[in-house]
Amino acid sequence: MTSRQQLRSHIRHLRRSLSAEQQHQASLDLVKQLLPRPEVQQAQHIALYLTNDGELDTSPLIQALWQQGKSLYLPLLHPVVQGYLVFQLYTAATTLKPNQFGIGEPELNCSLLCPVSQLDLIFTPLVAFDAQGQRLGMGGGFYDRTLSQLEHSSEKPALIGLAHDCQQVESVPVEAWDIPLPAICTPSRFRTFSEQ
């Protein structure tokens, strides 16, 4: 069985190997897949992320959602509780600075934060996924920890993972803390998974 680290390394290499043209086309196809979805149409407060390390480019999606008048939020490393994320309003005027991982995030402004339970939809990054909706992240556990807070919440945002088609694997090695995704969108299709 492949270890999580080996799988992570292999898939990250695959997605970084995509050409600029393949990346661009994938990002446009992603928008075509997502915009008609009821989860997206009905959502007003949407969290997503800025692309890093060969991830599917979210820029065209961000522009399309802004054009539809959606309020978008970016993840920030939690300023107090290590290992968690908070989500802050993101507009075209937002100034970004690199966090400890070199990923752009807004300067913390508590008045612009949105509690996780009040988001309508969260697009999550991932490194690999399988046909059961299991997600393998970058290894920091930030999303799993943050989303675990919603376990007993009556209001839960919809969760959709975003990935290139080449990121699907036969089986993701699962740990107890992993939170499976109910839906994953790639440039070629939108997949939903039954509740685990």
Rank of each mutant, 00 (worst) to 15 (best):
M1F: 09
S3N: 10
H10L: 14
S17H: 14
L18Q: 08
S19N: 09
Q25M: 11
Q25G: 02
L28V: 13
D29A: 13
Q33F: 01
E39Q: 14
Q42N: 14
Q42M: 08
D53N: 07
G54V: 06
G54Q: 10
E55A: 05
P60H: 03
L61G: 00
H78N: 11
P79F: 00
Q82T: 13
Q82I: 10
Y84I: 00
V86L: 09
Q88K: 01
Q88A: 01
T94H: 10
F101C: 07
G102I: 01
I103R: 07
E105I: 03
E107T: 10
L108K: 08
N109S: 10
S111G: 02
V116H: 01
D120C: 06
T124Y: 04
T124S: 12
V127R: 03
F129C: 02
D130W: 06
Q132N: 13
G133P: 09
Q134N: 15
L136M: 08
F142H: 13
D144C: 02
E155P: 03
A158W: 13
A158E: 15
L162R: 03
A163M: 03
V169A: 08
E175P: 09
E175K: 13
A176F: 07
P180G: 06
I184M: 10
S188L: 11
F193W: 04
Q196M: 12
